[in-house]
């Protein structure tokens, strides 16, 4: 977290850059969706772009690119449980009753 005014001014420039990039990625997401690609490909592209946008918000706006170790540790643990949650439907699908 920057507190020095010169560093903050530098950060402001990166906020504007990220804003422009987020807008561009939003346009790309909508354009890709209107291209009527095959569903698996469309899902992959949309989620890759959303992940890139999310990383920019977390890294720059939430200052995660330079944060304390304890926060990284807490988020790593959260991410592990988050992916377990997302994996649950896959387990349920594999365990489904076949008719």
């Amino acid at each position: 977290m920057h507190s020095d005014p010169a560093e903050v001014k530098k950060s402001v420039r990166s906020y504007i850059t990220v804003f422009v990039m987020l807008m561009v990625f939003t346009v790309i997401t909508v354009a890709a969706a209107s291209a009527h690609l095959a569903v698996p490909l469309a899902i992959t592209i949309a989620l890759i772009i959303a992940t890139m946008k999310g990383s920019m918000v977390a890294g720059v706006f939430m200052h995660l690119s330079h944060e304390k170790q304890l926060i990284y540790g807490a988020l790593l643990l959260t991410a592990a449980f988050f992916f377990m949650l997302l994996f649950l439907p896959v387990l349920a699908y594999m365990d489904r009753v076949k008719y």
Partner: peptide, 15 residues
């Protein structure tokens, strides 16, 4: 809250 919407938008509106 913004980050959640970034994922909600494609998942609900586009896919």
């Amino acid at each position: 809250v913004d980050l959640v919407w970034i994922f909600l938008f494609p998942v609900l509106y586009l896919l």
